[in-house]
Amino acid sequence: MDRRKFLIWGHAIICSLGLSLPATAEESGNTFRKGSTMTEIQFILGSERLFATLDDSPAARDFAAMLPLELTLSDYHGTEKIADLPRKLDTTGAPASYKPETGDITLYAPWGNLAIFYKPFQSSRGLVRLGRFDGSISALLKDGDFPVRIEIVE
């Protein structure tokens, strides 16, 4: 089954059961809003593909507008993989800080770089969540620098 159809089908089941999706960031723990359009992206590392969903926020929409991107990921402090972005992102309305969890895709606004957390970390000023991986991120747990292509799932 096509990934997009599966997500729509899953949403239909939630609605048919009389359940509702979170309506605010406070209810969901991120910037998802009921009725928003979530952007699905993929990280391509050689023959492996990791899927993620971007939040509905100015920074995440601005990041999606840059795609596709070819970046080089590097390890940073044994906690995250980072890469320089070609330009700064729109962080309008972003919280002053964010506490990242494993699988979070973030922007570190002061440096303008992408930061993908493979371990949880403390709340950090200037960290802006862009989205989250949908499954395992084990393909990112490599030593050294390595290339990645990030693109929107069509």
Rank of each mutant, 00 (worst) to 15 (best):
N30I: 02
D62N: 13
R61T: 06
H77W: 09
F32P: 00
A25N: 09
T53C: 13
E80M: 03
T24M: 07
P68S: 12
I41E: 04
E48W: 04
S57D: 05
E70H: 15
L73I: 07
L50Q: 00
L71E: 07
M38V: 14
I41G: 05
D75R: 03
Y76H: 10
R49V: 15
R49L: 10
T31W: 12
F32Y: 15
S28F: 00
S57C: 09
T24Q: 06
A52D: 04
G78D: 01
R61Y: 02
A52F: 01
D75S: 12
G29Y: 04
L21E: 14
E40L: 15
S20T: 15
A65N: 14
L21V: 10
L67T: 04
L69I: 09
D56T: 08
L45D: 08
A65Q: 14
E70A: 15
A65I: 07
F63D: 02
H77Q: 15
M66K: 05
A64D: 08
E40W: 12
T37I: 13
T31R: 14
P68E: 13
T72N: 10
E80L: 02
R33F: 07
R33P: 00
T79Y: 02
H77M: 15
A65H: 12
E26W: 03
E27H: 00
S47T: 13
A60G: 05
L69W: 08
G35Y: 02
P68A: 12
G78C: 00
P22R: 00
A23M: 04
K34W: 10
P58K: 01
F51I: 11
G35Q: 04
N30E: 09
S47Y: 01
P68W: 13
K34I: 03
G35L: 01
K81T: 04
P68D: 12
S28N: 08
F51C: 06
R33C: 11
A59P: 06
T24H: 09
L71S: 05
H77Y: 12
A52I: 07
S74G: 06
E70T: 15
A25H: 07
A65T: 09
A64Q: 09
T31D: 15
L54N: 05
A59H: 06
D75I: 02
S47C: 03
M38T: 15
R49M: 11
S74V: 01
A64G: 07
D75H: 02
T72M: 11
E48K: 15
R49E: 15
A25K: 06
D55C: 10
T72C: 06
S57P: 06
P58S: 03
H77C: 11
T72H: 09
S20K: 13
A65E: 15
P58N: 02
A65Y: 09
L73M: 10
G35N: 10
F51A: 09
D55W: 03
L21W: 05
G78W: 00
S74I: 01
E70V: 13
H77E: 14
L50V: 09
S74Y: 08
I41N: 05
F43Y: 13
T79V: 11
E80T: 02
F51W: 13
F43I: 08
D55Y: 06
E70C: 10
A52S: 11
L69M: 11
E48L: 11
S28E: 08
Q42G: 05
R33H: 13
